[in-house]
Each structure stands twice: as structure tokens, then as C-alpha cells.
Amino acid sequence: MYVIHLRYTGALAEIDDALEAHRLYLGRQFDAGAFIIAGPKVPRDGGIILAASMDRDRLDAIIAEDPFSQQRLAHYDIIEFKATRLAPDLNLPQSPWL
């Protein structure tokens, strides 16, 4: 799995202009099973995405499709980890890339 930390590099006005396209992109990735959780940071200077396990090259290609990436509005820090514990009664979807 991956934690993706987005840090905005563009002005908030630029982020707001690209936000609808970014949300459509997120929706496609959730539908495809690539993303599990996503949301803005508080304060609003970026966001966090939890991504399913997959080849890193595949993840990099997915991130390259993000309008924030294409417009150079965010920097992405990516942390890979192996989930070994899960809270009781919490079920994570299975990725098609496992």
C-alpha cells in the first residue's frame, strides 16, 4: 500500500481552478480500485491519498494523470508500506493489482 502526501505548490486560486478535474480523476481511481481513502489536509496546504498495493511504476503512471500533477500544482511524497494490522470490523477493498 502507499500513502501519497500532496503538498500544493500552486496558489490556492490555481488549486481551486483545477479542483473539479482533480475530483473527477480521484473518482476514476476509486472506481478502478487504485485509491482507498483521499482528502484534504488541515490546514488546506495539500492532501493525503491511501492507495492500494500495486507496482510502483503503475502508481507513478496514475499520479501522472492527476490534473494537479499535469499542471505542476502539487508535489507528491510517496511512502510504501505493508499493512499488517487492521482495526476490527474494518474491511479494505481488494486491489485488482494484488
Rank of each mutant, 00 (worst) to 15 (best):
D60I: 00
Y25Q: 04
L90A: 02
I15R: 04
D66Y: 02
H5G: 01
L12V: 07
Q71L: 13
D16P: 00
D55W: 01
Q71W: 05
R72H: 14
A52R: 03
S95G: 02
A51M: 05
Q94D: 12
A51H: 05
Y76V: 03
R56H: 15
F35Y: 14
A74D: 03
L24C: 06
D45G: 14
Q29K: 13
F68Y: 15
A13T: 15
D45C: 09
P40G: 13
A11H: 14
W97T: 01
I37P: 09
G33Q: 07
N91R: 12
F81Y: 14
A34V: 13
A51Q: 05
Q70P: 00
E20L: 09
I15Y: 05
D16T: 10
L92H: 07
A64C: 05
L92D: 08
Q29T: 08
M1W: 07
R56S: 09
A74R: 00
M1C: 10
A52E: 11
L19H: 07
R28K: 14
R72F: 05
K82S: 15
G10S: 09
I36R: 13
D16H: 12
P88G: 01
A87G: 08
P67R: 12
G10C: 08
H75M: 10
A13Y: 01
Y8R: 04
H75K: 12
S53M: 05
L59W: 03
I36V: 15
L90C: 06
I15A: 07
L73S: 02
D66G: 01
D16S: 10
P93S: 01
A51T: 03
G39R: 11
D45M: 09
Y76T: 02
D16R: 14
A34G: 04
D16I: 05
A11M: 09
V3R: 08
L12P: 13
D17L: 11
G47I: 03
A51W: 02
F35Q: 11
W97D: 09
L26H: 07
F35G: 08
Q70C: 06
L12F: 10
Y76H: 06
L50C: 05
M1Q: 08
A74T: 05
P96D: 00
G47F: 03
R56W: 00
A32Y: 12
I63A: 01
R44S: 06
P40Q: 15
H75C: 07
E14Y: 02
A21L: 08
S69D: 08
R85F: 13
I62A: 01
F68M: 04
I49E: 04
V42A: 15
R56Q: 12
A64Y: 05
E20W: 00
A34H: 15
P88R: 03
I63C: 01
G46C: 11
A52K: 02
L19N: 03
T9K: 07
A13V: 11
W97K: 01
H75V: 08
A34W: 05
A34Q: 11
Q94Y: 02
R44M: 09
A32N: 12
Q94P: 00
I79L: 15
A18S: 13
D31L: 10
I48F: 13
L6A: 14
I78G: 01
Y8D: 12
Y2H: 14
